[in-house]
């Protein structure tokens, strides 16, 4: 009995160590980014000695910050709306209909999730340059649909499966047309699913990096890409200015995350495959 209790204690202690270490690192990273962006000459010591807001001014001179924020949100919202238009009908068909090749089709839809973005991203970027989509906001919107749509289909399917077919059959019997059934029965019943898929994709698309990085130019890039370019060219500008941009990105992503957690649970941020 005592041995069992000791074992439990050890597993509890290990559990606490992992959690504390992880939280310490995550909090540490976030806090140093924020503090550094407001600091002057913080080379040693626990806290900066002089605080300043000048790096934000600096970052604002280097980038058109309003434009960056605007593009980031425009891309995210456009991708969510277009993504839902494509994936809701598809998720409905995949959840309801039985047809030959369904399993194959489903795995084809999931393929963009298991092939790394850098692998299909380079040919995709080449095509974007060929068709003059690169460097334009519309191009950024189009390429980011690739990871969003499969994710949405996966999130939506279980929600549609949950809605019984009875209500649809009843509506059909009462003479409703297919379009009416969709608009008056199915969409209201699957609103939680649409909301979940939309919110999760919105949060996800703000941090999408690879594909935007490959095709975006000065005026069609999102904050996260600008942030990477700044951090990559370290030395060209003070690190505090990069951190100032990081804080702006952090604030946006965190706000979206906190709002989204009112509607979805953290485990839904990663998808489940049966």
């Amino acid at each position: 009995m005592i041995a069992v209790r000791n074992k439990l204690k050890i597993s509890n202690a290990l559990f606490m160590i992992v959690i504390v270490l992880f939280v310490f690192i995550v909090l540490g990273i976030l806090l140093t980014v924020v503090l550094n962006s407001f600091s002057k000459g913080w080379y040693s010591g626990l806290l900066p000695k002089v605080f300043t807001a000048e790096w934000y001014k600096y970052a604002g001179q280097e980038h058109k910050i309003p434009r960056l924020i605007g593009v980031t949100f425009l891309v995210a919202i456009a991708d969510v709306l277009i993504g839902l238009l494509i994936s809701f009908p598809a998720a409905y068909a995949l959840a309801r209909a039985e047809f030959k090749g369904k399993a194959l089709l489903l795995s084809l839809f999931l393929l963009p999730m298991i092939v790394p973005p850098m692998a299909y991203g380079i040919p995709l970027a080449m095509l974007c340059y060929k068709f003059h989509l690169a460097g334009r906001v519309i191009g950024t919107i189009v390429v980011n649909l690739v990871p969003i749509v499969p994710f949405m289909i996966l999130v939506l399917m279980p929600f549609i499966e949950q809605v019984g077919t009875n209500l649809e059959s009843a509506a059909k019997m009462l003479g409703a047309k297919r379009g009416t059934i969709f608009a008056k029965v199915l969409i209201p019943l699957t609103t939680p699913g649409l909301l979940t898929a939309g919110i999760l994709s919105l949060v996800k698309s703000i941090s999408l990096f690879d594909l935007t990085y490959l095709i975006a130019g000065e005026n069609s890039q999102t904050i996260v890409v600008a942030l990477f370019t700044d951090a990559y060219a370290a030395g060209a500008r003070p690190p505090q200015a990069t951190d100032a941009l990081a804080v702006i990105y952090f604030a946006i992503a965190m706000t979206c995350l906190l709002v989204s957690l009112r509607f979805v649970s953290p485990t839904q941020m990663v998808f489940k495959v049966k």
Binding site: I19, F22, V23, I25, V26, L27, G28, I29, L30, L31, T32, V33, N36, Y43, S44, L46, V203, I206, S207, L208, F209, V224, L227, F228, A231, A234, P239, T242, D243, A246, Y249, F250, A253, M254, C256, L257, L261, S265, P266, T267, M269, V270
Partner: peptide, 28 residues
């Protein structure tokens, strides 16, 4: 779970950028 979801949402770029200061020679 919240602390776990934070790095997932923020993405690699911010985490890597922040690590440079936090884990640097004079970092916390």
């Amino acid at each position: 779970s919240f602390f776990f979801i934070v790095p997932v949402t923020l993405g690699t770029v911010l985490i890597s950028e922040g690590m440079l200061t936090f884990m640097g020679p004079n970092g916390w």
